[in-house]
């Protein structure tokens, strides 16, 4: 559908939240707790963190929670009965999500909706509306423009807000979901905005590499063990990068039983863990951290784009900021680009 431009006045932000609350929507927005900014349920616009480059953790848990029930069961004597999932996901608005993160929602969708349709994910997805917020500043870890995004990209968002100098927002209504939400908030979005030069309001993120060339290069250096070992020597094999990543989708399945009832749960997992691929026999196809680091990059920059025709990394920079050992993904990528064949 054609993008429609409107203006959201700063004084309309409060009523916007009130009306969404009243309509029974759960609102997730970036909130500041200590030094951290996380997407959490909020009820008022006052709770939202202002003036930050990137949230510490992404909002992906709104569609792909760190732990979620796949099915539950109840046992009586020797008989075990599966129980139907009770509740449907609540209609949810994610407010203030960065364009890179909104693009990551698309990447997640590609994984869960290609071939087998994963209804655990899709049921949540259907109930989600994304109100993006363009970036007016970036930092050294950002590289969205190298992976197909930009600080004002509309990809993935249903509505994209861009802050104006006077505190108001340029609102781009991008999808039917966005339209429906605007229609339900009668009058909060005012006409106007068609003459605004959006580009001039955005942060500048200089492209550092070309994603297509990066894929080719990565495929070419696949067997360069020295490179992968050198890059991963300081990696300690934790899951911080994968768990703050907005597009990482790997998961584990764990069963729990307490007394006569239990659940099968889906939990985030990471290809950086040695246990991820370990066979019961003790054989491990990726037994070194170098192989696991290579897998992480290959999955994001080669296999993923080939399979889903979407970047597997959106350049949000979270993994680099979060890494306890300063594994800077952009630095590593640029080093790979420089590597002689």
């Amino acid at each position: 559908m054609a993008t429609e431009r409107k203006i959201l006045k700063k004084e309309s932000l409060g009523p916007l939240f009130e009306k969404m609350n009243a309509a029974g929507k759960r609102i997730l927005a970036p909130r500041k707790t200590g030094e951290q900014i996380r997407f959490e349920p909020v009820t008022s616009a006052n709770e939202i963190a202002a003036d930050f480059v990137q949230s510490t953790a992404s909002a992906k848990w709104a569609v792909f929670p760190a732990v979620e029930e796949m099915l539950s069961f109840r046992s009586l004597d020797k008989e075990t009965k599966l129980e139907a999932k009770q509740s449907k996901p609540q209609p949810t608005v994610v407010f203030g999500i960065r364009p890179c993160d909104a693009a990551a929602f698309k990447a997640l969708h590609a994984v869960f909706a290609t071939d087998y349709k994963d209804d655990l994910f899709l049921d949540r997805w259907e109930q989600i509306t994304l109100i993006g917020m363009s970036c007016t500043k970036a930092d050294d870890y950002c590289f969205c423009t190298s992976v197909g995004g930009n600080p004002g990209s509309t990809v993935g968002s249903d509505i994209l807000l861009t802050p104006l100098a006077n505190g108001d927002f340029l609102a781009e209504i991008l999808t039917e979901k966005g339209q429906q939400l605007v229609a339900s908030l009668d009058g909060l979005f005012a006409a106007g905005g068609s003459d605004i030069d959006k580009e001039s309001l955005l942060a500048k993120v200089t492209p550092k590499f070309d994603a297509k060339q990066m894929k080719a290069k990565m495929d070419a250096v696949f067997n360069n063990e020295k490179l992968w070992t050198r890059q991963s020597l300081r990696c300690i094999g934790c899951g911080a990068c994968a768990f703050v990543c907005p597009s990482c989708s790997c998961f584990d399945i764990q069963d729990e039983r307490y007394g006569g009832k239990g659940q099968r749960l889906r939990c985030w997992d990471s290809c950086g863990f040695g246990l991820f691929t370990l066979h019961t026999s003790g054989h491990n196809p990726r037994h070194t951290q170098a192989q696991r680091w290579r897998q992480r990059l290959m999955h994001k920059f080669s296999y993923g784009p080939e399979k889903y025709e979407l970047p597997g990394c959106v350049g949000c920079g979270r993994c680099s900021r979060a890494c306890p050992t300063d594994m800077n993904i952009l630095g590593h990528l640029l080093e790979i680009a420089e590597e002689k064949l």
Binding site: T33, R38, A57, A66, I236, G237, C238, G239, A240, A242, F243, C267, W268, S270, F273, P324, T325
Partner: peptide
């Protein structure tokens, strides 16, 4: 808020 990335353990 813990997501069990085990960074604490690994570090």
């Amino acid at each position: 808020a813990c997501v069990k990335c085990y960074a604490c353990r690994s570090a």
